[in-house]
């Protein structure tokens, strides 16, 4: 299909919680230049799918293959969780959260190296959060927190970046900046972004995965009501203007 390297593949995966299957028979291949938008109704299994890919829950059936680095370890995955899943009263500074992006099995004990600290400084400057470095996470606004988590997710230069609803609790200005940043990052890593609506992201993503129990992969960033119906994926499309059965505005310069 492409010259791009496959970094992860789900084969006939069934997964869920407490013995209840939420997503079934999922086949999905992720390639190194992908930018996939994951959409679907609440409870349809978007977060379950993300957790399976991250290795946080084991599938009941089926398997996931990851491509391996030379030393035989899985390629690193960057992860930006839903911010309401985080305890904001936890006593941790922005600086430490960003540094936690270097967490890995070889580094249980080792202290952060000077290189790592410099990298953290650099990335905090890039994200515009360097002045917040000594603040604790509880003192930040939603947008600031998302920036911190994005810095943590990408500091280890992962090959796959997964974002779970990064557009909640943020203003439109930040949302735009975030997507511009992601387009840029997409040159060096594959991106999976979960979104409750498909408004602004549609112009940035390349393909769409509709998740509602099953996963339907749509190889385009343009989708209409009929297609969503066919995928059994009832979400509301944001309409732009009066066009019936809205096709979202297209935007070509990434392709």
């Amino acid at each position: 299909m492409s010259d791009y390297k496959k970094i992860a593949g789900l084969n006939k995966v069934y997964a869920g919680y407490d013995g209840k299957i939420i997503i079934n028979d999922v086949n999905l291949d992720i390639f190194e230049n992908d930018f996939i938008g994951i959409i679907g109704p609440n409870g349809g299994g978007k977060t379950t799918l993300v957790k399976v890919i991250l290795g946080l829950i084991k599938p009941y059936k089926g398997n996931i293959e990851y491509s391996l680095e030379n030393s035989g370890v899985r390629l690193p995955i960057g992860y930006l969780p839903q911010i309401n899943a985080i305890d904001k009263k936890f006593p941790i500074s922005v600086n430490d959260v960003v540094l936690s992006g270097f967490l890995s099995t070889e580094k249980y004990i080792k202290k952060h190296t000077l290189d790592e600290k410099n990298k953290a400084d650099e990335i905090m400057k890039e994200m515009g959060i360097v002045d917040l470095r000594k603040k604790s996470v509880g003192e930040l606004s939603g947008g600031q927190l998302q920036r911190v988590f994005l810095a943590r997710a990408i500091i280890s230069s992962p090959k796959l970046l997964i974002l779970d609803e990064p557009n909640t609790f943020v203003d439109n200005k930040f949302e735009g900046e975030l997507y511009e940043k992601l387009s840029h990052l997409n040159k060096t890593m594959a991106i999976l972004i979960v979104s409750h609506d498909i408004g602004m992201i549609s112009t940035y993503i390349k393909t769409i995965a509709c998740v509602n129990g099953e996963v339907h992969y749509h190889r385009s960033n343009i989708i209409n009501e009929e297609q969503l119906q066919a995928y059994n994926c009832p979400i509301q499309l944001i309409t732009h203007g009066d066009v019936p059965h809205t096709v979202l505005k297209t935007h070509n310069h990434h392709h």
Partner: peptide
């Protein structure tokens, strides 16, 4: 969750 995703 983040730590688990890093295979800790």
């Amino acid at each position: 969750d983040f730590a688990k995703a890093r295979q800790i």
